[in-house]
Write a protein that binds this DNA or RNA. Sequence first.
DNA 1: CGGGAAGTTGAAGCCAGTCAAGATTTGTGG
DNA 2: CCACAAATCTTGACTGGCTTCAACTTCCCG
Lengths: 242, 242
Amino acid sequence: MATKCTNCPLRRRSLFTEMSKDDVAFMEKFKVGELVVEANTPILMEGSNSPQLYTALHGLGLRHKTLSNGDRQVLNFVFPGDFIGLQAGILGEMGHSVEASTGMTLCVFDRSEFWNFFKHNPERAFDLTWLAAVEEHLLGDALATVGQRSALEATAWAITRVYQRADALGLVRNQTTRFPFKQKDLADALGLSLVHMNKTLKKLRDLQLASWSNGELHISDLNKLAEIGVIDLAKPSQRPLF
Amino acid sequence: MATKCTNCPLRRRSLFTEMSKDDVAFMEKFKVGELVVEANTPILMEGSNSPQLYTALHGLGLRHKTLSNGDRQVLNFVFPGDFIGLQAGILGEMGHSVEASTGMTLCVFDRSEFWNFFKHNPERAFDLTWLAAVEEHLLGDALATVGQRSALEATAWAITRVYQRADALGLVRNQTTRFPFKQKDLADALGLSLVHMNKTLKKLRDLQLASWSNGELHISDLNKLAEIGVIDLAKPSQRPLF
DNA sequence: CGGGAAGTTGAAGCCAGTCAAGATTTGTGG
DNA sequence: CCACAAATCTTGACTGGCTTCAACTTCCCG
């Protein structure tokens, strides 16, 4: 049974901006159902023009591009609250693929209703653009990391960022959070080989900064980690939820 | 004397979508003037919240992030028609800096009027989101390149992309286009050292694929270049102009 | 329990970074 | 318009971080 937007468990979290009753009702009309997928299921394919758009309610996934030679670049990890399919909605074509890494529950929206935001609800349209701008911002950071930082720095950066995102969602306990990805996923996100990723993680373990095993990420010294990763620890500001 | 939007020289180019007379008039109100800057002038700084937004009318520039350790990542090159400051307009803060590499002329828009697009002109608001989505798309490509491709592949990719963009703007003659950047700029865009960038360019020269000197980029074999760079040569589709 | 996926570790090689020095172009003041 | 300085480009030699190859271990799940 699909949850009503009024009762959305995500909306309560302090990370997300308040939404008026009217807007919630507006979203309710837009929502056509929920999708439950198993781990390792493709959700959207690069180049596709999906009739449906999603918001991640529960579970984790990743966005990636696969080159014709088989190499894969992971662009980002998908957390609850993330909007999926903006490029399909706006450009008519996804520039990357999205897949579920764990089991996931997704809110499903009808793409044909997309235009209504712009026509009838400028605030929500603005929020949508806001999300696109943030995504651009994050990709810029990732590009700078992959382009300029060493393997140790990049790994520290990535781990710090994941931890911060999880923390903002209230998913951290005892400096530990669920991070059910493969080492290969992180390697592909940072442009490193799997072997070197493994050795770099070992180094962070030996330095007593962070350890990641059995899908659990534990942070021992966030400040030191942030320092190595050249990242500032400013609390992420509130963001709109779609 | 500032050009009126009605007479905008860019708008005539086939790359850009048609705009209704009403919309052009709408833009006209939004435009507050023109800015002429010299080469090597900063236009927007990372972290700043500029009251003004721009569209490049003439000249070339680049977007970049500078890390605290001094390393620089070039995110993209700015061509005529590019909108500058979307992040400032939407997020209230730029995630990267923008600077002029040649002398540039920029249309200046008032940021405080920004919200009016969403309120009064949903088509233009949609176009804005479109631009943000395309930017995200391009950054994804760049990330995949820097993360997964060798120096030769990455360089071929970058050169091909620049050439395609210039071509779409009608800036190519005799398979040659103006590309008045430094080798360091391209190196910083691809995460390579200057020395290796230089040697890679020499290799492309020796292979008789492309040569770049005196700010002029000449392409001998675009197909081969695109093949090495793993990029497809589909004509870029029309895009909205702001 | 057996087999496959994921993680771990060592050894060898190479792509790209760093260092260094000279050539060429660009900019500037007299 | 020349002369000198600064920036950019170029090339060679050396170094090293990361990749590749290969084998072994551990963890699951049927």
